[in-house]
């Protein structure tokens, strides 16, 4: 191996290569020709026409792209990752969160915190749960890791606040009990795949 590569001390340029991007005119005549060509070719007028066409379309063909945001909203993808929702069990109405703490652990911006306790039914109960939305980067890991599909990303993306960090409590994100019938099953990050049943290994539990 030669030392050529070390002799170019202009670090950073070694990985670049020049590509031919056409020729610039050589000599006064060529330059003049180019000016004339460009002047009379009408490129500028093509530009004018394009914008005019857009204006005509916008005004008369109603081809307007503006969405009047607070008044109109675009439909969002089910995989969109906005403010979290806490889902309830459809049958009993009890919230699904079992307090396993996986979302807290996986959260890369460290914005989820939960306190748990031993409740009177000898179950693990979440006594407090917050997400610091000032920090949350909506990466979707929490929804993905949740074994119960309890924390999911909901469609509420309007989360601007006057404070740097808005905290959200468990109850704020929880489906209201009277709106249980409106609760949508989540099909975004971490949701059960449509063919999940096929992937399960059956065990001989006859009981």
């Amino acid at each position: 191996m030669g030392l050529e590569q070390f002799k170019n001390r202009n670090v950073g340029t070694q990985n670049y290569t020049m590509v031919d991007a056409g020729h610039s005119p050589q000599g006064a005549m060529c330059q003049f020709k180019q000016v004339v060509k460009r002047t009379f070719k009408g490129e500028l007028f093509v530009g004018l026409w394009v914008t005019m066409r857009s204006m005509i379309k916008a005004l008369f063909a109603n081809d307007m792209h503006t969405v009047k945001y607070p008044l109109e909203k675009l439909p969002i993808s089910p995989r969109y990752r906005a403010i979290h929702d806490m889902l309830r069990l459809l049958e009993s109405g009890h919230y699904r969160c079992i307090g396993c703490g996986l979302c807290e652990k996986i959260c890369i911006s460290n914005c989820i915190a939960m306190d748990t306790r031993y409740d009177e039914n000898q179950r693990k109960e979440v006594s407090e749960y917050t997400i610091n939305f000032g920090r949350c980067i909506f990466c979707g890991y929490c929804a993905e890791v949740c074994p119960e599909l309890a924390i999911v990303h909901g469609p509420r993306y309007e989360n601007a606040s006057q404070q740097r960090a808005g905290f959200s409590l468990f109850e704020d994100m929880l489906t209201p009990i009277d709106k249980l019938n409106l609760q949508q099953e989540y099909d975004g990050f971490g949701a059960v795949s449509p063919n999940a049943d096929e992937n399960i290994k059956q065990t001989p539990l006859a009981y």
């Binding site: 990985n15 290569t17 031919d20 991007a21 056409g22 020729h23």
Partner: peptide, 13 residues
């Protein structure tokens, strides 16, 4: 070199 002549492109490694 004439500045119009070249475009710097990342070499395909």
């Amino acid at each position: 070199l004439d500045a119009d002549d070249e475009i710097l492109v990342v070499k395909d490694r």
